[in-house]
Simulated scan of single mutants.
Amino acid sequence: MLSEQAESQGDMQRRIQELLLLAEFNAAIGTLHDPNQVCTAACSWLEEVLRWEVLSISCTEGDAGQFRYQVLYLDDHLSKICPDLAVGVNPSTSRSGKRDMGWSEFGHNVISVCFPDRSGVIAVSRKSVQESQFSDELLAGIAETLSRCLSNAREYSRLKTLSMHDHLTGLYNRRVFEAMLEVEARKRTSKPFSLLLIDLDNFKTINDTYGHGTGDEVLVYVAEMLRLNFRKSDIPARYGGDEFGVLLPETSLDSAQRIAERFRGNVSGRRSLFGARNIVPTVSVGIAVVSDRANLEVAQMVEEADRALYRAKAPGKNRVCTALVTGQNG
C-alpha cells in the first residue's frame, strides 16, 4: 500500500515537472513570429534542457502530403544514419503520435512524432529520448506546442506578406516602397540612385473597351515584365492604379535611362494575348536621379520623377524622360 502511494506520488511529481517543462518550452518559442526562428529556438531548447538530439522538423501547408516548408536543423553525423530526413517525410502516412510510430525505413535510431493536426513531424534521436527518461506524454506535448507555435508563426508571416504586397501583382505596395525610398535616401554614401515612375499608357481606354478583367491581365503582364527586366538589386512596386515605381540603388543617370529604355521597348515588343485580344501595351517612364543626398526629401524626389513622367506622356506617350535631383539645392 505504501509502495503504491509512493509510486503515485512519484508519478504526480513527474507529471508536475513535465507540465512546468512544457510551460517553459512554450515561453521559449511562443512569442516568435518567424517559422525558422521558432524551429531554431525549439531545437536549442530541446537539446539544452531535455538533452534531446533533434534531427529535423518538417511542416506542411495546404494539400496534405506536400511539403512547402521544411527546415531547420539536421545534424551532419545523424543525417548519414537517416539520410531520408534531409528530404522530409509525408506525415499523412504516419500512425498515432506515440513513440512507436517511427517509419520502418529509418530503422530504430529515430522517434518521429506527428503534430496533432497532421501539419508536420518532429524527428529526434531515439537514444537521446530514452536516456532522458521523460514520458510519452511529454513528447506528445512538445509536438503539440511546437505545432501550435509554428502555425501561429506561419499565419503571422502570411499576414505580414499580404500587408506588404499588392494583392493583384504581388509587387510591393506603395507604403512599403516609400519606406524603402526613405531608407535609400538616408544612406551615407556619395553614390547616386534613381527612381523610376512608370505609367501604363491608355489604361482607361483598355478598361473601358475590354473590361476590368482584361485591364487586370495587362497590369499583371507589366508587373511580370518588371520582374524580368530589372536587376535583383532593383525594387519594383505597384505605386497605385496604373502606375508602378522602381528603386534603382547605385544607378547613375545614364544607366537608369538605358535600363528604362530597354524596359519600355520590351513591354511593347512582346506580343501577348489579353482576354483573347491582341493588345499592345506601352509605358511612359519618368526618372529622378539623386546625385546628392544631403537634406534630400523623398517627396521632392517623387515630385521630380512625376514631372519627368508628365513630360514623357505629353507629346504622345511611350517615352522616357529624366530629371536630376540634388538635396542641397532642392
Rank of each mutant, 00 (worst) to 15 (best):
F203D: 00
R154P: 00
V298N: 09
T282I: 01
N202G: 02
V283C: 07
A28F: 06
V267K: 00
K204E: 11
G213M: 03
R277M: 08
G170K: 14
Q37R: 08
I142C: 05
V218A: 01
K160V: 05
M12G: 13
R148A: 12
L273E: 15
F193G: 00
D199A: 07
E7G: 11
V289C: 08
L32P: 02
S157W: 04
D208F: 13
E61P: 02
E184A: 11
N26I: 11
D75C: 04
R271P: 01
E47Q: 10
S56D: 03
F106H: 12
V89T: 10
D242A: 13
S194M: 00
V124L: 04
G102E: 03
R68A: 10
Q130R: 13
E105L: 08
S190K: 00
P192N: 01
V89Y: 08
S151N: 10
A41I: 03
R126E: 12
L72V: 07
L22G: 07
N266F: 00
R15H: 14
L150M: 09
S94E: 06
G327V: 07
T326P: 02
L2V: 15
I122M: 06
L21R: 09
C39I: 09
G241D: 10
I235S: 01
H77L: 08
K160D: 08
F274K: 04
G240V: 10
L296V: 14
E48H: 05
S94L: 12
L159R: 05
R154L: 13
V71N: 10
E61M: 11
S157C: 14
L72F: 10
T209R: 15
L200K: 00
L2C: 12
S119Y: 05
L159A: 04
L196N: 05
E178F: 12
F177S: 05
R307D: 04
Q37T: 10
A123I: 00
V320G: 08
G330E: 15
I16S: 08
H77I: 06
G215N: 01
H165S: 14
A323F: 01
T145C: 14
V218Y: 00
G245L: 04
I81Q: 14
N26T: 15
K160E: 13
A153P: 04
N207S: 06
G316S: 05
N109T: 11
L85I: 13
P249C: 02
M12L: 15
F177T: 04
F67Q: 12
V246N: 02
R95K: 13
M12V: 13
G170L: 14
E155C: 08
F230C: 03
V289M: 02
V220H: 02
P281G: 01
F177Y: 11
V280G: 04
V110D: 02
R154D: 03
H33Q: 10
E7M: 15
E131L: 13
Y239E: 05
A314K: 15
A260D: 05
S44A: 12
P91I: 11
T161E: 15
V246R: 01
S3C: 11
E182V: 13
A288M: 06
V71E: 09
E48V: 03
L159I: 07
V38C: 03
G65S: 10
L78V: 04
S147N: 09
E224M: 12
